[in-house]
Design a protein around this nucleic acid. Structure first.
Length: 480
RNA sequence: CGGGGCGUGGCGCAGUUCGGUAGCGCACCUGCUUUGGGAGCAGGGGGUCGCCGGUUCAAAUCCGGCCGCCCCGACCA
């Protein structure tokens, strides 16, 4: 059992914080709700960024950067937008030693300032679609911060696009939801459920919001990414119009979509175990760690020669590898040290291995002595990419199984009430309720409608709250 | 903002009941011995006890006020 890490079965929230501390992902800041992302944690974020940024560019988007400070009046233009964000705004009232004419809002999101610019840049249907993305920080004064999951300031990417008509904009909304879904599955190894948000849960200012919902280790849901169809809501208040081919003014139809550093929290909570972090190889800052073992100087020299050549070979294959040749620290300590940090593959090389022409290998997703295996020195460098790929797939399979085993179908409210308490997880239920039904359900059970999955079953059934016959199934769960 | 808990070396805590000038574990530094699952011994450095005020010969400890943090809820990426 890992030292200094609470058992997740016993206290999941404490476990989460312990892992963040022990794996050196983040530290708390002097300002409440803010956090310092430490190099190891930031490196995970950089890998997330690199992967998504490539996908955004593949789908035709360009990066830009809009300012942190937004005139307060901008936020107030779109009625629902203000209502949604007003309580959590940080507002700058003074600058240069003087009270400002108009207060400035630190962006909670950039729809308004971007529309301000879109209205200048977009004149003709030939300017469309406009496909932008920005990597930025935003500030939302949330009441209850949690490291990575909900911090006052957080890093994210926000895509903003403008299209000639609803159909294209809706297509874009779903295209980006798919990009997020693929990223979650294939890179983060987190099986998410893509779906639409209910009226109650949708983004302030959107016509429709879509989400990917992930299941965390305690059975709770985490909204891990969102994609919104904004309709012409912002275009109308910012006059974002274009001249169509018939020489008529039209409002643009818009989308916005984002994922944040919350994804780092998702990775921790979806994959972590009682020994700490577990990272899917594609996101791991260190994919392979090599622990050289030697009793004396001559053995060490011999071992290090081999280790160096292995490292060079792996680096040539673009594998992120680290050699832990710290002195005065026992191998056992190092094994645990790297396990807490979630490194997918560890190689141990000592004199005994050299004699036998192999290395000992240990996969983070199968920790402990019993599951160690040997790889011959001859084939090591060539076989490592395949092993990492295998680990990546195994982690996704494990996560899928974990989710399946905690996904339940219930037919009536009583079963749900009992289930959500005794067996936290995703509850797939027939649903025909409205916002008030949702509010009531949340009051009673703390659970919410996480999403209306895009993939719907055949047939119909009776709504769990209204009893009406419906063709719609939703996912109910407790959420972060 | 409601409920609960807590502020004492970097981290985790004891000491507060019953005032007497600060201690333990881990971490850190030095040396020697060690190194295949969190090494051992010896020596060492580091704390105006959250802040302000009061009582007292004397306050981590008692009294008054303030501040902050964490966890649980409502809100959210």
């Amino acid at each position: 059992m890992a030292k200094n890490i609470t058992n997740p079965e016993k206290d999941f929230a404490k476990w989460y914080q312990d892992v963040i501390r022990e794996a050196e992902l983040a530290d708390s800041a002097p300002v409440r709700g803010c956090m310092i992302i430490r190099p190891y944690g930031y490196s995970i974020w950089e890998n997330i960024q690199a992967s998504l940024d490539a996908s955004f560019k593949e789908t035709g988007h360009k990066n830009a950067y809009f300012p942190l400070l937004i005139p307060e009046s901008f936020i107030k233009r779109e009625a629902q937008h203000v209502e949604g964000f007003a309580p959590e705004l940080a507002i700058v009232t003074h600058g240069g030693g003087k009270k400002l004419e108009e207060p400035l809002v630190i962006r909670p999101t950039s729809e308004t300032i971007i529309n301000h610019m879109f209205s200048k840049w977009i004149n003709s249907y030939r300017d469309l679609p406009m496909l932008l993305n920005q990597w930025a920080n935003v500030v939302r004064w949330e009441m209850r911060p949690r490291a990575f999951l909900r911090t006052t300031e957080f890093l994210w990417q926000e895509g903003h696009t403008a299209h000639a008509n609803e159909e294209e904009a809706r297509e874009e909304t779903l295209r980006m939801l798919k990009v997020y879904t693929d990223f979650a599955m294939n890179v983060a190894a987190i099986p998410v459920i893509p779906g639409r948000k209910t009226e109650r849960e949708k983004f302030a200012g959107a016509v429709d919001s879509y989400t990917i919902e992930a299941m965390m280790g305690n059975g709770w849901a985490l909204q891990s990414g969102t994609s919104h169809y904004l309709g012409t809501n912002f275009a109308r208040v910012f006059d974002t119009m274009y001249l169509d081919s018939n020489n008529e003014q039209q409002f643009v139809h818009q989308t916005s979509w984002g994922v944040s550093t919350r994804l780092v929290g998702a990775v921790i909570m979806a994959h972590g175990d009682e020994n700490g972090l577990r990272l899917p190889p594609k996101l791991a800052p260190v994919q392979v760690v090599i622990v050289p073992i030697a009793r004396d100087d001559s053995a060490r020299a011999e071992v290090l020669t081999v280790v160096d050549s292995i490292r060079d070979g792996l680096e040539k294959k673009c594998i992120r590898v680290e050699v832990d040749n710290r002195g005065g620290i026992s191998p056992g300590f190092k094994f645990n040290y790297w396990e807490v940090r979630g490194v997918p593959l560890r190689l141990e090389i000592g004199p005994r291995d050299l004699e036998e022409g192999h290395v000992m290998a240990s996969q983070r997703n199968k920790p402990g002595r019993d599951d160690k295996f040997t790889i011959s020195l001859d084939s090591l460098v060539d076989s490592t990419p395949g092993i990492l790929e295998k680990i990546q797939n195994e982690m996704l399979d494990e996560a899928i199984q974990k989710r399946e085993s905690r996904t339940y179908s219930v037919e009536n409210l009583d079963d749900f009430r009992e289930g959500i308490v005794n067996k936290p997880g995703f509850y797939s239920v027939w649903w025909d309720g409205d916002s008030e039904d949702e509010a009531r359900l949340q009051q009673e059970t703390k659970a919410t409608v996480r999403c209306i999955p895009l993939e719907q079953p055949e047939g119909s059934g009776k709504c769990i709250v209204t009893g009406r016959e419906t063709k719609t199934k939703v996912i109910l769960a407790r959420a972060y």
